[in-house]
Design a protein around this nucleic acid. Structure first.
Length: 898
RNA sequence: GGGCGCGUAGCUCAGCGGGAGAGCACUCGGUUUACACCCGAGCGGUCGCAGGUUCGAUCCCUGCCGCGCCCA
């Protein structure tokens, strides 16, 4: 491979070109095996498994967020000396994948699924899997995911399929999996059962129709939103104590249309206050009615087929779609004078298949179920006991609500793509569950269950099936439980709960030490991204335009725990600007000979001490924040340090230091040290640009496996140096402000005398002040026309050039500070009005400050009750305000009349 | 209906008992020997409303208004 990046001594290219370089760097990382975990390494293990993306989809920004945050965590741990494993892979997404392939067959004019037959159809799906899955892998590489490709897994792999059969067998034998005929959420579109969490309840505008059953005094009125279900009614129910209907209980009423006589039953479930107090009962098509039917041993006729068409009702409505039948039956009833009331529109909640959006049809059918009670309890206990901690903690309550109120889980799906249920039925009604190492029964009349398992059944095993379970592999021994699971809070009930249930059951331990739940990515105005709104952003387009680092930095900077973030191309462009800034900073450093291999100077300058102290603080703060999953705050802190402190101030202060032979070498060392550490700290967030810059700066092979900066980073904070640098910044800013307001552009030569620098402790900083304010030395003809007075907080001048000992503290800020007078020769009259306006604003601010302070100090309760430190602080502010008012007032009086 | 959360600068969001912050946007100035994907200086807020607790409330409590999400 060609090395496109320069060696340390060569200058960096003037521009960072991510599109050209990122792919090369990524391939090099993979080729050199940096991301491969090693159970034999002797290092402490750290493991995160990917929340498996759906093989049929493509990665969207939500995935980009998962991947960025996981990559930040694992790359940092790797640098910290852990044996870090990020395990990649995908799930087979039974329903979604089968639907896509069926649609593609139809679009290509090929035979249908049933025409092809099961074996051939499944072969076609594997072809599609290779194509679609490959695209996802490519996306992960573009994002820079530091995954261990040698351990990539797929839920339908041989190993993972063994895990599915093993856990199914164990649960079957222990009675936790059973087969039962029950009412399920049936999707007429998919023609399959789906689980509760695949159903969305939505308010819809329908109708509420009241129908009279029976004749005359012996009639009852029932109301329904689904008129067509009356074809399957087998009872009318009333409350046992409802006197209005007491005479009917135990008798029958004659149904319209079907002409059937159905019993009137009494059941306390009926709310006598609701509607007429009488309910029509359709046990095969409504969950509540089903329970009632079981209690009263009612017949349960199914009057629809798998696609939602009326069937076997014995009426002329057979063959009619359920919605068409609803209208037709209603009109028939109307013609017979049976309708006594109609409410339309009637808003009520209807379950919809979350994938197709089609209304669910509750359907009586024979399915396989998981008995969840003990599993859900164990999952809840794992969190309650602290074995697993959920971040942010507020999310734990949702988790508990869910696991404490969970219904049995329907796991069979009427599909072909997935793990076929490992149960065989014999000719004489035998049922045999076949384990992974057993041979299925052979012989006449034996057949395997036709259905496959819910995809979540296999992805629930993911934290350990991917590590080799049920075999006792070194990986399993070492990487289970996983360190962290990172996923969106919207996925809590899908993955997290299922994985917790299976992990506690099969492994006896919760699968995760930590679960970090991030928010959703929304558009720039906080709206959910959706195809229908047309506001979806493709992560690959952002990477093409701005680089993967820019996308990653944007995501990390916006990701506060548990809260959604807004994202737009402008934010990403801003992050791209950050990488460019970093690039230019290192370019400048290299051009001036910065080198981290040089020893730090014996006598660092104030600027050196300040930036080295800040570096130490920032490194400590970043570590603490990342340990607590505070990605946004950690990233924001690094942004601020890099741009506002390192680039805006230290690099500028370094310029005069480079000019001075006494400080040039030390500055090379300090700048090298700071950038070396900063690039390593930034690497997990922006891996590409930091790799290019760090290798150029240090000559090292790669930053991927470089050591994470430790306690010896930077220097202890030197408070005296900090105070002097802050005074310097204030002085420079005030002069710049004056120049701006006086309309004195930088190129315009302005001579000035700096009076009082020494008293302010800034004796050694005149050169820096002049450089950063563009003030020239005074000549023989110096004639000042204006003075800028800058009141500085007290800085301990005596300690200038002193040692950088830890814990040094400057004098208290309460003592009166020094004032530096900058006398300028503006070569002409100054703009008195501008100066008066500027001083007026300063005066108003000082007066407001004084007013607030005096109000507080004038309140005896405040001085009595508030902590002494707070009171002292307010007193100091009052004194400073008084001094400022005096100074500004004097200046104003000294101005010529305008 | 139950639960959770949110209303802070034009936009997106931090801050959550003692001096209102950031990014973007905006205004003015700038071909400064790293960077115009930039530099310098600014403008901009009764911190949703009303009570309460407190010496002191954007921050704690209560109610109201508006918005969002989850579950039924």
């Amino acid at each position: 491979m060609t090395e496109t990046l320069p060696a340390r001594t060569a200058p960096l290219p003037p521009k960072w070109n991510p599109a050209e370089v990122e792919g090369v760097l990524y391939q090099r990382w993979v080729d050199r095996g940096y991301f491969e975990a090693d159970p034999a390494s002797g290092k402490p293990p750290y493991c995160i498994v990917i929340p498996p993306p759906n093989v049929t989809g493509s990665l969207h920004l939500g995935h980009a967020m998962d991947h960025t945050l996981i990559d930040v965590l694992t790359r940092r741990r790797r640098m910290q000396g852990y044996d870090a494993l990020w395990l990649p892979g995908m799930d087979h997404a039974g329903i979604a994948t089968q639907s896509v392939v069926e649609r593609r067959l139809a679009e290509a004019g090929e035979p249908t699924r049933r025409e092809l037959g099961r074996e051939e159809f499944v072969r076609r799906v594997w072809e599609w899997k290779a194509e679609s899955g490959g695209a996802i892998l490519g996306q992960m590489k573009r994002l820079g995911d530091g995954v261990d490709w040698t351990r990539e897994r797929f839920t339908l792999d041989e190993g993972l399929s063994r895990a599915v059969r093993a856990v199914f067998k164990k649960m079957f034998d222990e009675g936790l999996i059973y087969r039962a005929e029950r009412l399920v959420n049936w999707s007429p579109a998919l023609q399959s059962a789906i689980s509760d969490i695949e159903v969305d309840h939505k308010e819809v505008e329908g109708e509420l129709v009241s129908i009279r059953y029976g004749e005359g005094e012996d009639s009852v009125v029932v109301a329904t939103t689904r008129v067509e279900t009356m074809l399957g009614d087998t009872a009318v129910a009333v409350h046992p104590e409802d006197e209005r209907y007491a005479h009917l209980v135990g008798r029958t009423v004659r149904m319209p249309i079907t002409g059937r006589d159905v019993p009137v039953i009494a059941d306390p479930y009926v709310d006598p206050e609701f509607g007429t107090g009488a309910l029509k009962i359709t046990p095969a098509h409504d969950p509540n009615d089903f329970e009632m039917g079981r209690r009263h041993d009612l017949p349960m006729p199914t009057i629809m087929d798998e696609s939602g068409v009326i069937a076997n009702s014995g009426t002329e409505f057979d063959g009619m779609d359920r919605f068409a039948a609803r209208e037709a039956i209603r009109e028939q009833l109307r013609a017979e004078g049976r309708i006594v009331a109609e409410k339309r529109p009637y808003t009520h909640s209807v379950g919809h298949d979350s994938r197709t959006g089609v209304p669910i049809e509750p359907r009586l059918s024979l399915q396989w179920w998981v008995k969840v009670e003990s599993l859900a309890k164990a999952s809840g206990d794992a969190v309650r006991s602290g074995e697993t901690s959920i971040h942010p903690p507020e999310m734990a309550s949702r988790f508990f609500d869910w696991v404490d109120n969970m219904h049995d889980w329907c796991i069979s799906r009427q599909l072909w793509w997935g793990h076929r249920i490992p149960v065989w039925y014999g000719p004489d009604g035998e049922t045999v569950c076949v384990g992974p190492d057993e041979e299925p029964p052979t012989g006449e009349g034996w057949r395997q269950d036709e259905d496959v398992l819910d995809t979540w059944f296999s992805s629930g095993l993911w934290p350990f099936s991917t590590l080799g379970w049920p075999e006792e592999t070194p990986d399993l021994e070492r990487y289970y439980p996983n360190s962290v699971l990172v996923t969106g809070y919207d996925i809590l009930f899908f993955w997290v709960v299922r994985m917790m249930m299976f992990g506690t059951y099969a492994m006896g331990r919760s699968p995760f030490e930590h679960v970090y739940l991030h928010g959703l990515i929304r558009d720039e105005h906080g709206r959910k991204m959706s195809k229908s709104k047309g506001n979806v952003i493709d992560p690959l387009e952002l990477i093409d335009a701005y680089g993967a680092d820019a996308l990653r930095f944007t995501i990390a900077r916006g990701s506060n725990p548990g809260t959604d973030m807004s994202l737009s191309t402008e934010w990403v462009a801003g992050s791209r600007n950050f990488t460019t800034k970093l690039w230019n900073a290192v370019r400048f450093a290299l051009a001036n000979g910065a080198d981290p291999a040089l020893p730090l100077p014996q006598e660092p300058t104030d600027a050196d001490r300040w930036i080295l102290g800040r570096l130490r603080e920032v490194r400590e703060q970043t570590d603490a924040l990342l340990e607590d999953f505070q990605f946004a705050k950690a990233t924001e802190g690094l942004y601020h340090f890099t741009w506002d402190e390192l680039c805006d101030w230290y690099l500028e202060l370094a310029k005069p230091q480079f000019d001075d032979p006494a400080t040039a070498e030390g500055t090379r060392a300090v700048l090298g040290h700071v950038l070396d550490a900063l690039l390593r700290i930034l690497h997990p967030i922006v891996p590409f640009v930091t790799e290019a810059l760090w290798t150029a700066l240090t000559g090292g092979e790669t930053v991927v496996t470089a050591t994470w900066p430790g306690a010896d980073t930077g220097l202890p904070v030197d408070a005296a140096a900090v105070a002097r640098v802050e005074a310097l910044q204030k002085l420079i800013t005030e002069v710049r402000r004056f120049r701006t307001e006086q309309g004195l552009p930088d190129r315009r030569s302005v001579a000035a005398a700096l009076v009082g620098l020494e008293a302010a402790g800034l004796a050694g900083h005149e050169k820096a002040v002049r450089f950063l304010t563009r003030l020239d030395p005074t000549g023989a003809d110096f004639a000042p026309t204006a003075t800028v007075e800058v009141a500085l907080g007290s800085v301990d001048g005596a300690s200038a050039g002193g040692s950088a000992s830890a814990g040094a503290t400057a004098g208290g800020s309460a003592s009166a500070g020094a004032t530096v007078h900058v006398e300028l020769d503006t070569s002409g009259a100054i703009d008195v009005a501008a100066e008066r306006a500027r001083l007026g604003r300063d005066l108003a601010a000082a007066q407001k400050e004084l007013e607030q302070a005096e109000k507080k100090l004038g309140n005896p309760k405040f001085t009595e009750k508030a902590p002494a430190a707070v009171v002292d602080g307010i007193r100091a502010r009052r004194e400073a305000a008084v001094a400022e008012i005096e100074r500004v007032t004097a200046r104003l009086e000294g101005l010529p009349a305008s």
